[in-house]
Structure formats: structure tokens, C-alpha cells
Design a protein around this nucleic acid. Structure first.
Lengths: 231, 231
DNA sequence: AAGTAGATGTCGCAC
DNA sequence: GTGCGACGTCTACTT
């Protein structure tokens, strides 16, 4: 990994064209050929970048570039799409190289999968007398998170999200449309379950007769550990 | 901006919990308090990070940490959400600081906005005799990209995307539902226009009576410059 | 290879 | 601030 602090301007030509005027920035050139251009602010997204796999080349300086004060020009090109990042360097402030080796990578503990697991185990949160049929019930257009039956034995399809937004309601609507054509299931009641449901999503869901259920993650985890203690 | 190359492990606790085992990485600590943890590969997304605004603190080392060989522990906490990133540093390989100043920022030329502009100017691409009513026609749930009328004077609502996927069809469907309740507009014909339309999106659209129109960006730009030459 | 749904998405704009 | 759509989305996973 090469780290360069330099006064530079940057031009990107690819899916769009973009330009960064001259300023001092951090340039990160990774082992896989990718290049990141970072400023001292913003979030993790670079001002501009080239993703791997890419080729890195120090380009010949045109007379125009030399007159403008460019001391080095980098041309980073994507191997497949041909997208190009051109960096005009006016001054090197710092330039270093470090061997990092291959990273063991991130391990994460998801939330949505855990929510599904918890709700399947605590299915009565859907309402008294509810029973679980199965998780990931397959339909022609994809799996419904949870299929259950209410106290009267009627089918209940549950879509689980960490944050409930309109997209999730649309998804559940498509499932319900399909499932309600199946005489063995119909009528199917829809439940939109999430840690947090956005007002617009709730309005859309309720307008379509879909019930909204806010899941308290901490509470559910508490109940889980409580159950564990009993055994 | 502080740049540190260090052998470290990282733990994130926030919307999810995640862990990075000990390895040599690049740590970028920005002026706004944010921290990025990068490996020598992957794309522009860091292995782990904390977005601004955040507080940075060098934490006391527990006995356990000292025994494990930790020489310094950073605790970076998000000011609002309380999400925390803890970096255990086992060895400093490099440590430097640079003043970058405020960045003038990126200027870009978009594509979707340009497509809308071009289609409005070349409205006959919708079909012979079509006329433009307006761009960004407001409805109660948001603006329709283009409202036009066909040769017979019937309303045509156009949704434009760079890449046409199912979401876009759902969006247009919602607009059409609403617009078809307006006696001044109904019946409204839907057109889903994009540089590229995914098969599933096309199937869904056509199933709902929405016409699909593939836009040739280069061709449209060519016609635009051709028109410019005439004047 | 292509399609789909999720993301600690991030970013920018309108209300 | 919240809502909402776009993004050079990226990414992992399934078909």
C-alpha cells in the first residue's frame, strides 16, 4: 500500500464525468491497483476512486500540463470497463509504502436474521394462539420470512425488516398477491414486522390491510435468554 | 488528518456488532473525528469505520489488555447514536499527521437528469405525434419525470431510470394509480424508459400494461448535438 | 453470468 | 430535522 499526501487535481471519466480542483489530499494506492482519493472530512466514501481490478500508469506530461505546474500524472484505468481516473500532481507532500499482507477480514453478527430467529421462537408475539408453520416459506417469487397460522387456523405471512420502509411493504404485497391465489392458503393475512416502521410505510401497509408489528429487539433477546435460563 | 499503520484488532458495537482480528492495517483519523480502518485491498469501503461526528479518546488499558500485548486502545464514539469503535493497537508501524485544509469538493455531470432533459427535448421518441406537457409533474406522492400527451391527446406518464428495475415499475405504478383517479388526466398510459431494462422489470411492467422504452444515450446525445448544429 | 435483496449503506434535496 | 430517491451505489447470495 502506497500512501501519498499531495496537492493534486483529479478527473474521472466513466459512468459519469467528475472533476476535483487542485487541493491537498490523501491518495491511497492499494495492492490490487485500486486508488482512493480522500479529503480530511466526509464519511468513509472517498471524494473519488477507482475500484479493482485496475492498471496504474505514470503518464507522459504534455506541454500544457508542464506549464500548469504538474510534476507527475497518474492514469488509473479499470481493466474491464475502461473507466479512467487521472490524477495531476502538483506537489508531493509525503510518499510512503507499507506491506500490510492479506487481511483476515470482518466477522459480523447480523440483526435481521436474528430477528427472524427470535420471532419464530416467540411466535405468540404475532397474537395469542398463533403457531409457526415455517421460516423462509418458498413462493414462486421468493421466500416469505415467516408463515404462521392464527388462533383460528388462518394463514399469516410475515415480512421482517430491521427498518420497515415502503420497499418492504411492496415486497410483502407481492407475496400476499401470490399466496392469496393458493386455495390451500387463502385468505392470507399480512404482517409487516420491524424494529422500527417509518410512518409512510405504516400508512401504505395499513391502507392495504397489512398489520404492522414493531419488534423490540432488546426485549426479545431478554426473553430468549430468560428461556435459556429455564433449561 | 492522522495516518497510522498499526498491528491492531477492532471491535464495533452499534447497529450490529463486528470484529476484526489482529492484523496490520491503515487507520485514518480525520479532522471531524471520523475513523477509517483500511486493508490493502477491497474497494473503497473500509473494513470498519466510524462516521462523523465522533469523539476520539485514548482509553485506559485494562490488565487483560496489557497482558494481551495491547500498547494503546482507542475508543471512537458517535456523538448521537453512541455507536462505538474500539481499536486495540499492538504495534505502531508508522504514525504521521498532515494538514489538508477544506476540500473544494467534487463537481459531477449526472446521467439520469440528462436523460430526462434529452427525452423532453426529443419527446417524439415516445411515439409519433407525442407532445410534452411538462417535466417533473407533481402528484400527491411525488413528481412524475415526464407528463406528455399522445397523438390523440391522451395522457402519458413517463418514469425515467438509468437502469430499469422492479422498484422503478412499482414507483410508476403508484403514480399511475393516483393519476388515473384524476378525471382530467385519466386514462393515463405508463411508459417505463431506461438505458437498460432488466427482464423481470420488463415482465412486471408489461403485465401491468406499462410500455417499456429503451433509451440509447449516445444516440440521444448525437441527436442533441445535431440539433445544436442546425442553429 | 444474471438477478435480487441488504447495507453500520452514504449523499443530497425538498419539505 | 425527516422523508425519499439516487448512487460511478457496493456486496453477498441465489439461480
Amino acid at each position: 500500500m502506497r500512501l501519498v499526501i499531495a496537492r493534486c487535481s483529479v478527473d474521472y471519466v466513466g459512468r459519469l464525468t467528475a472533476h476535483l480542483p487542485e487541493a491537498t489530499r490523501l491518495l491511497i494506492h492499494k495492492a490490487d491497483g485500486s486508488l482512493l482519493v480522500h479529503s480530511d472530512g466526509g464519511s468513509y466514501k472517498p471524494l473519488n476512486w477507482m475500484s479493482p481490478p485496475a492498471t496504474f500508469e505514470v503518464a507522459e506530461l504534455s506541454e500544457e500540463q508542464q506549464l500548469a505546474g504538474v510534476v507527475e500524472c497518474w492514469e488509473v484505468k479499470h481493466r474491464k470497463s475502461g473507466d479512467t481516473l487521472r490524477v495531476n500532481i502538483f506537489e508531493f507532500v509525503s510518499d510512503s509504502h507499507h506491506e500490510l499482507g492479506v487481511d483476515p477480514g470482518l466477522t459480523k453478527d447480523g440483526v435481521e436474521a436474528h430477528l427472524q430467529e427470535l420471532l419464530a421462537a416467540q411466535i405468540e408475539r404475532l397474537g395469542d394462539g398463533h403457531t409457526l408453520v415455517r421460516r423462509e416459506h418458498m413462493t414462486a417469487i421468493g421466500p416469505v420470512d415467516i408463515l404462521a397460522r392464527d388462533a383460528e387456523g388462518a394463514a399469516v405471512a410475515v415480512e421482517i425488516k430491521r427498518r420497515g420502509e415502503i420497499d418492504g411493504v411492496e415486497q410483502l404485497t407481492r407475496y400476499l398477491e401470490l399466496m392469496n391465489r393458493d386455495p390451500l392458503l387463502a385468505p392470507v393475512q399480512g404482517v409487516f414486522a420491524a424494529q422500527e416502521i417509518k410512518p409512510q410505510a405504516r400508512t401504505l401497509a395499513e391502507d392495504r390491510g397489512i398489520r404492522c408489528l414493531v419488534l423490540d429487539y432488546d426485549d426479545m433477546r431478554g426473553e430468549e435468554s430468560g428461556e435459556l435460563r429455564l433449561f
